[in-house]
Design a protein around this nucleic acid. Structure first.
Length: 243
DNA sequence: AGTCATGTTGACGA
DNA sequence: CTCGTCAACATGAC
């Protein structure tokens, strides 16, 4: 479910309820969900992997984590964490993290950090990377305050495209390569979005879960890399290690 | 059937 | 206090 593009698809699917008033609320969320009843949804927003339901004075923040799912105008067998009933349909969220953000949502988020946002600012990402020269690039790409919305699949695909070894140190990677990585984080996210909508995402993976390198046919290395210890798939022949 | 994963937070101890 | 490690959450693909 996760990664920014999937959350953007969710936003598009529920857009039919924007501006509508919530008729009924239920669910096993620990937040005070009854607060939502009879309230009007001002807007749906996303910031990376955060799905935001904005009301006049507060915002409901939903994070799908690893296993979160949702249904629009449908229900699953299990009890939803949050069920929103509208005059014309319903939204159901399952196994996700739900929190309330008080006040103006803009005070919580820098939209220019979101690789899928119209205000995405690659220059800001460059400045942020310049501050962490000793970090591995595999960790830096997953930093949500630099590349909000980028997840482990996108990380692997971007590094493969850019010929960069995931354990390379940010400060040792040539500047023009850093610029290319930043650019690809946003570009690939939009391609991910496009393919995901067509249900053909996996078909386009070049490195993620692959056993051999499609460029040189040597075996792909499969390793938990960096502080974050997330799976990396890479070719030591094609992806240069900068240390 | 058991293992593992597109993720994040918070508790705990060194 | 800070850093690193790990448990917790909980579903579905293979």
């Amino acid at each position: 479910m996760p990664e920014g593009p999937s959350i953007l698809i969710l936003k598009e699917e529920v857009q039919q309820f924007a501006g509508q008033t919530i008729m009924e609320v239920s669910g096993n969320s620990s937040i005070d969900i009854h607060r939502l009843k009879a309230k009007k949804i001002v807007a749906f927003k996303t910031w990376g992997k955060h799905f935001l339901i904005c009301f006049e004075d507060f915002t409901v923040k939903i994070h799908m984590l690893m296993f979160g799912t949702y249904r629009v105008n449908e229900q699953k067998e299990t009890k939803p964490r949050l069920h929103l009933q509208f005059a014309t349909g319903e939204i159901n969220f399952y196994t996700c993290s739900i929190k309330i953000l008080e006040g103006d949502v803009n005070q919580y988020y820098d939209w220019s950090e979101d690789v899928l946002n119209e205000n995405w600012n690659p220059k800001k990402a460059k400045q942020s990377l310049d501050k962490i020269p000793d970090e591995m690039i595999c960790d830096a790409i997953l930093d949500q305050n630099i590349f909000s919305g980028v997840g482990n699949i996108i990380k692997n695909e971007v590094l493969y495209r850019c010929f960069i070894h995931p354990e390379s140190l940010v400060g040792k990677i040539p500047s023009e390569k850093i610029t290319e990585i930043i650019s690809e984080c946003s570009l690939y996210s939009f391609e991910f979005l496009y393919w995901k909508k067509k249900f053909e995402l996996k078909k386009h993976w070049l490195s993620y879960t692959k056993n051999s390198c499609l460029r040189c046919n040597l075996p792909m290395i499969r390793k938990y890399t960096g502080k974050k210890k997330r799976r990396s798939f890479f070719c030591t022949n094609c992806q240069q290690l900068h240390i």
